[in-house]
């Protein structure tokens, strides 16, 4: 093909350097909030600025944060998975049951991850295979998965995990650096690359902005969504391993209502609840913000109920800010 150029014009790649747009981003604002809370916490209580306290603070969000990384991708694609806590409960129950037969740690891990992926695949089949709305499907499977745990366990609990199993939720890699925080940061790096640096990630954004146009551009929309639900299931399975190891036991009420906290982290991280926009960096910072807030309130002896009110208000504020800002802008 020869070039048929009609009065050539040069269009720049960008008007703004990536650095300049990063400085104006939601992530930057969120990071400032994190710093502010950090300073507030250190002034409000003398127990905060201490390596072990800070290390403890991370446990408040690492497991939820790992699920939030995958949930961010699901929400960016325009879907949602509310069954993650249910998956976690079922995966933990399966591991607990297996532990009763004295299986080894590697097998336990494999069971936790496998149950997670299978549950995710079940969601994925219903959503992309049958074309059902994900919010309905996963509200259903949320009760289904946890319901199975209740049937198996009743008001009992599984204990007696092998001794090596406790490392995942209680172990430290070096000094105060826990295995959980290292794993969270590694997973964050992997998800960052997956969402922002691969063609798979690009298709997630395209689907979230306009699934039909994405389909008409040759993106295999249903396949991508199926993979996303499997991935979320896998991360819920991973979180099940960490939490079960940390608690040393499994009750059917484990991680109850975590799906809301996970969604809160995702939305706080700047992911559009309508799909199509968001970043892993934002979700990671939001994880830290949540951890600092809840830990700080804990140190101040704020009761759990008040804490959940606080988190709820934070979520509403975060969702309202961009909408109110846009309205003020358009009024001018």
């Amino acid at each position: 093909m020869s070039d048929t150029t009609l009065s050539p014009r040069s269009i720049p790649d960008r008007l703004e350097s990536p650095l300049a747009s990063a400085l104006k981003s939601w992530e930057m604002l969120l990071a400032l909030v994190a710093v502010a809370i950090f300073i507030f916490n250190s002034l409000a209580t003398p127990y905060f600025l201490n390596p072990w306290s800070l290390s403890d603070a991370t446990f408040n969000f690492t497991e939820r944060g790992i699920i939030a990384l995958a949930m961010a991708m699901v929400i960016i694609s325009g879907e949602i998975d509310l069954s993650v806590a249910g998956i976690l409960a079922l995966a933990s129950t399966a591991m607990g049951a297996a532990a009763q037969f004295g299986v080894d740690v590697p097998v336990l891990i494999a069971i936790g991850l496998a149950v997670g992926v299978l549950c995710g695949a079940f969601n994925g089949l219903l959503v992309s295979g049958l074309g059902l709305p994900s919010i309905v499907v996963t509200i259903g499977t949320m009760s289904l998965f946890r319901g199975i745990s209740y049937i198996v366990l009743g008001d009992q609990a599984y204990r007696g995990y092998p001794s090596g199993f406790s490392f995942f939720g209680q172990g430290y890699v070096y000094w105060v650096i826990s295995f959980e925080i290292v794993l969270f940061l590694v997973m964050a790096a992997i998800f960052y690359v997956l969402l922002h640096r691969t063609s798979f990630g690009r298709s997630v954004f395209a689907i979230g902005n306009n699934a039909m146009a994405a389909q008409f551009s040759g993106i295999r929309v249903r396949r991508v969504k199926f993979v996303l639900f499997c991935l979320t299931g896998l991360m819920a399975g991973l979180a099940a391993i960490l939490l079960t190891s940390r608690l040393g036991s499994t009750r059917p009420s484990i991680a109850f209502a975590w799906e809301l906290e996970v969604v809160t982290i995702v939305v706080l991280g700047g992911v559009s609840i309508l799909g199509g926009a968001g970043s892993i960096l934002g979700v990671v910072i939001a994880g830290f913000v949540m951890g600092l807030v809840t830990f700080g309130l804990g140190l101040l002896n704020v009761p759990g109920i008040v804490m959940s009110i606080f988190v709820g208000l934070m979520l509403i504020t975060v969702i309202a800010i961009p909408i109110v800002a846009r309205r003020i802008k358009s009024r001018r």
Binding site: D13, V193, R197, T198, S199, F200, G201, R202, S203, F205, A206, G208, N209, N210, A213, A214, S217, G218, I219, G276, A277
Partner: peptide, 25 residues
């Protein structure tokens, strides 16, 4: 058009296999 995505990402969307290196953009 996938409104919400920048121009260059719209243009490259069906050609991502060609422009990316083993899946990486």
């Amino acid at each position: 058009a996938v409104i919400g995505l920048p121009i260059f990402q719209n243009i490259s969307l069906p050609s991502l296999k060609k422009t990316s290196r083993s899946g990486f953009l």
